[in-house]
Design a protein around this nucleic acid. Structure first.
Lengths: 192, 192
DNA sequence: GCGATAATGTAGCACTCGCTTCATGGAAGG
DNA sequence: CCTTCCATGAAGCGAGTGCTACATTATCGC
């Protein structure tokens, strides 16, 4: 009974490994996802990772799911305010993406989507869910505009594009983000 | 003398291989870039690819450079008109990116940038040049706006983001592109 | 024709990858 | 004490990677 946390059972150990891997991926990116290297960094062996997760694909999926849960917790704090216009939302999210706590998540998600774009399994499946979750969340954060509804994918495209370009060529988008946010704000002004 | 084209020399053969590889990559994407698989598909051996290019990195760089040249030829046809506003430009480029001739190029460049974002050599170096070339070209296509100059990277971010999302989740951006172009057009209207 | 040089095939090296097999340790239960 | 089962380590398999060493053929200048 009292062993529930003191002596974690199989599921507990699996969770602990997933947690350690998630933290590592958030810190160092998805490039770390080789079984041996990952195992060494989280203090176990490739043998054990397969033992607890069954396959590398299941491991990756599990770790990314865990990262998703962490992010959704973070985002709940930002989902408190009232819905806003697309321009205002973009400004908020681009600012949010520069928060050192949130930035690792943006980088990981963009990396996932990039690998999905290259057709790499199992990231293609994960990416579908990530995109669905993001668009759903964006949809809840936007003021509904019956005349000219903003497709959440439009804002997601911008965020992903800016993040991707910033990862590939650091510094190349420092002016782009604010300019885009302001441009959409101007469009907001003419929309109503 | 007459052998210049009939019996290609070393450089000629190298060029022919690069051309074949470029066509293949445009058709099937960068996933094809393993030495053995690539060699088989262009009718030679990995041994010969290394012989003519020296290393895989040099091969990749050469093939991508050739793809870049092909694209710049294509884009010259679209660079004839007068400079336009950011919104108009985005509309043109997003339309251009759906042209079946241009689309493979967009996908390859986005894939290159995505691999660069993941830190994969030699794509990181290539991506820097690609981004520089794109921003330079975009810069020449935009009406200069002294009040609120549009950073070319802003438009490039959108194009890359839309392309990436479309590659990862086909169909997810069908409404996003037009909406974004129109939003920037509205912003144009308020800019002058 | 002959020797040198360039072009190509064959085999293989050293490595990484995801994953498996075998063996061992060690704790729980009868 | 003995069995039984879970957790883990060590080694290795088969496939893949970029690349190389060696041998062979083809070609060209003499």
């Amino acid at each position: 009974m009292s062993d529930d946390s003191a002596t974690p059972d199989r599921a507990g150990r699996r969770d602990a490994l997933a947690e350690a891997a998630a933290e590592l991926v958030l810190r160092e990116g998805l490039g770390t996802m080789g079984l041996r290297g990952l195992a060494r960094r989280v203090g176990t062996s490739d043998r054990m990772l397969i033992y607890y997760f069954g396959s590398k694909d299941a491991l990756v999926t599990g770790v990314l799911a865990r990262i998703g849960e962490k992010l959704s917790v973070l985002l709940q704090a930002y989902s408190a305010g009232p819905p806003v216009s697309p321009g205002a939302f973009l400004g908020q999210v681009l600012m949010l993406g520069r928060d050192p706590v949130v930035m690792p998540f943006m980088r990981v998600w963009t990396d996932v989507i990039a690998r999905a774009a290259a057709g790499e399994a199992p990231y293609d499946m994960v990416a579908k869910k990530v995109v669905a979750d993001w668009t759903a969340w964006i949809g809840t954060r936007l003021i509904p505009d019956p005349d000219r509804p903003c497709p959440p994918a439009a804002l997601l495209s911008i965020v992903e594009g800016v993040t991707l370009l910033e990862m590939a060529c650091p510094g190349s988008t420092t002016e782009a983000g604010p300019w885009l946010a302001e441009a959409l704000l101007r469009a907001d002004g003419r929309a109503g």
